[in-house]
């Protein structure tokens, strides 16, 4: 068989364990992209992953890296502890879903970002709690039916979805904030670039990549319909954008150094 060559294979940064994710779920794509970035940067021996509670609670089974499993919402705090303890050449990333990061872990993500912790947070936003059976998340869209919003998300009672990237972009210290999507090949290729940028900038400060993701099981849709649903419903509210990168800090990010002397 002289003309057969390998054009695609599992990254050596992923173990051979089989993903437990549902068919059509994009966690598997996100895992692969991170593994490829770690592999291509040649930092497998210097990268420590922090895994969340949620569908990706078992991510430690899939990354062939040193891994710490965090409590629900606390991954940025755990990553902070690692970052402040490990040699500077290490890479620390936290992987979190939207219930984990934007609800129970809202405090930890904002303060880790605000301290400018030299970590990367990969944020999978699929607008629902997947692991616990499809409950309403802080990112659930207005009117969207979930097991705890059976009449659709009522914004008068539950407010509107939280836009994490935009919220973090009000802070001074993050160095990279971007939102991508995993719904079609061009977005997946772009998402990998965003992850790579975040890792490359990690030692300069806090880096954050939000990835719009699907939950066919929680949404009650086929995998293909889920991809369309994401683009049709999520992208208009969660625009795909690089919010923060070196040289393109918004006005709010201007460093402020007050004159602390008392006058008068």
């Amino acid at each position: 068989m002289p003309n057969i060559k390998t054009v695609f294979e599992r990254s050596e940064v992923l173990t051979s364990n089989q993903f437990h994710y549902c068919p059509g779920c994009t966690h598997g794509i996100a895992h692969r992209l991170i593994a490829e970035v770690v592999s291509e940067m040649g930092i497998q021996d210097r990268t420590i992953a922090v895994c969340p509670v949620g569908c990706s609670v078992l991510a430690y089974e899939y990354f062939d890296l040193d891994v710490v499993q965090a409590a629900h919402g606390r991954a940025p705090a755990v990553a902070t502890g690692l970052r402040r303890s490990l040699p500077e050449d290490r890479y620390v990333f936290a992987y979190q879903g939207d219930g984990d990061l934007a609800s129970i872990g809202m405090s930890e993500i904002i303060h880790a970002a605000n301290r400018g912790e030299k970590i990367t947070v990969i944020f999978l936003n699929n607008a629902i709690y997947g692991m616990t059976g499809g409950q309403m998340a802080p990112t659930t869209l207005p009117g969207m039916v979930t097991t705890t919003s059976p009449y659709g998300r009522d914004t008068l009672q539950c407010g509107h979805p939280v836009r994490m990237s935009e919220m973090l972009n009000t802070l001074v210290d993050p160095v990279f904030i971007a939102r991508g999507a995993l719904s079609q090949p061009k977005h997946v290729i772009k998402a990998k670039k965003l992850i790579r940028q975040a890792f490359e900038l990690q030692h300069q400060g806090f880096t954050f990549v939000e990835l719009l993701s699907t939950c066919p099981t929680g949404w009650g849709l086929t995998p293909t319909d889920s991809m369309h649903w994401l683009e049709h419903n999520m992208v208009p509210f969660f625009p795909l954008q690089v919010f923060r990168e070196p040289g393109h800090a918004p006005e709010a990010a201007n460093h402020y150094t007050p004159d602390l002397k008392v006058h008068g």
Partner: peptide, 11 residues
């Protein structure tokens, strides 16, 4: 809550 989880990371 954050303190004890930072401790978990550092430990």
């Amino acid at each position: 809550v954050a303190s004890i989880n930072m401790l978990y990371g550092a430990g």
